[in-house]
Design a protein around this nucleic acid. Structure first.
Lengths: 259, 259
DNA sequence: GCGAGTCTTCGGTGCGTACCGAAGGGACTC
DNA sequence: GAGTCCCTTCGGTACGCACCGAAGACTCGC
């Protein structure tokens, strides 16, 4: 009698299905994590929240064009799944990514997607898209042509090493202190690496992420060298910022198509 | 009249649902990608294939304990989704991960999973699990205590920089040439980085991945310093390997719990 | 207080899909 | 050529879940 393993009653229960070598217990967990993102609406929420800010439930519902009740259920699921963090304030429910690790997770997933297939339609869409391609925030660091150009300039000056992997050099650490006033201790927060490569959606090249990327973005916004455009994630380089980047990194913002 | 956007006929079609700023067109793609892994059986297939070898459809079906017909459908879906590559040979269908980028994707997902909750039961399971924790392959490089110990030793000797991110140093490149006979040109293949951090499942610490990690694994297997245990992904350090690592990296295999 | 605004809970509908067995198509062996 | 093996295709079932509207809980402003 050759009863296949999958047809016996015991083997069909959840606990007995996976092989016993320990490793594959993960498959259920992996599937559960992936399932959180395996819905267009939930995926849209997460991508929207990749701008690093907190959105209300209603804003997200409108963004993804679903009923508030539907959004509410999805948001509960994402929060319980550990991807989002919520803050109840008055009658609003503010949501944001649960942390840098979630941003990294989303980045590594989106990095493996095909480039955008359908070009945006309509004037508003085109100009919004162009602004995002020029410069934007990606969770807590800079992306788009701006982010990539800064990273390239830092690499050319030996502040970032992209030859052997992706790391901030000793000179890079000094530069953060001297040029931006960021103490070395501020670059080592917990287990998050100082420098990490983040593949840019639009440029398809690496830009600087990690604590150094976050501190860089902070400082540039603080000093008004970069400003947010409206309320979105798009940013633009200011006149003062162009002059500063020219001096600190030898970066010609106009030539690099950042203005 | 305040008809909500989501209730109009046009807005419910796929093409009009996403906002028009260009970015959120990705949400559909992200959801599609995530859906490939959002099933326990498909997730188990992918995790099994993380050993880097090619499995037959039947082997995978038995591993995940589903009917061959069910496995066949899942494998077709994973292949069409770009995660797996197949090779038909005679009456067999061999499957493996479509490339290092898929291995990276799986790593970054599994890195965000909770540590294993249920300890493995039974003698066979425990010893298999212990062997995997001691040393194993992770796609094309070494993992487990062995992988982490080698990476730590390389870091202590200044061959790998984990301070500013994760990169192979100049000294590290020389070491690959002198100690292993790997030419620098062999460390730069296409767009894959020479060194990349891969978070170890069992150790929860980084080990060396990327082309350097792959070459290292190749050489150690070639020179019989490391051998596969049976047909699985577990590996063990040989006597010759322990001596070699002692000499080349000052690594005491016995003290590090590798033997 | 009362109404407006935000979010949640609940019931109900419909679609997608994971699963199996049975049957069929190639490929290998003897 | 017959039998065996591996895989695929197809039909059918059952379950999960994404979605909505309506009703309720809670906060805020007047």
């Amino acid at each position: 009698m050759t009863t296949p393993a999958y047809s016996t009653a015991t083997n069909r229960t959840a606990t007995h299905r996976a092989p016993a070598d320990g490793t594959p217990a993960y498959s259920t967990e992996l599937a559960r994590l992936a399932a959180l993102l395996a819905d267009r609406t939930r995926a849209a929420f997460c991508l929207a929240l990749l701008d690093g800010r907190a959105w209300t439930a209603g804003e997200l519902a409108a963004y993804a064009q679903v009923a508030p009740s539907t959004a509410s259920e999805h948001l509960t699921r994402l929060t319980e799944g550990g991807l989002l963090a919520e803050r109840r304030q008055g009658r609003h429910r503010y949501l944001q990514l649960a942390g840098p690790h979630v941003a990294e997770l989303l980045e590594s997933l989106t990095a493996h997607l095909d480039p955008p297939q359908g070009a945006p339609r309509g004037l508003r869409a085109v100009s919004a898209s162009a602004a995002l391609a020029r410069g934007r925030t990606c969770y807590d660091h800079l992306a788009g042509r701006l982010g990539v150009a800064i990273t390239d300039a830092m690499t050319a000056r030996g502040l970032v090493d992209q030859d052997g992997g992706f790391a901030l050099t000793d000179a890079g650490r000094d530069w953060f202190t001297d040029a931006l006033g960021v103490e070395p201790a501020d670059l080592r927060t917990g287990r998050r690496p100082p420098a990490r490569a983040c593949l840019d959606w639009t440029e398809r090249r690496n830009h600087l992420a990690g604590t150094a990327g976050a501190r860089l973005c902070d400082r540039l916004l603080d000093r008004r060298w970069v400003r947010r455009i409206g309320s979105g994630r798009a940013v633009r380089l200011t006149d003062a910022g162009a002059a500063a980047l020219q001096e600190l990194l030898g970066l010609d913002g106009t030539a690099a198509g950042l203005r």
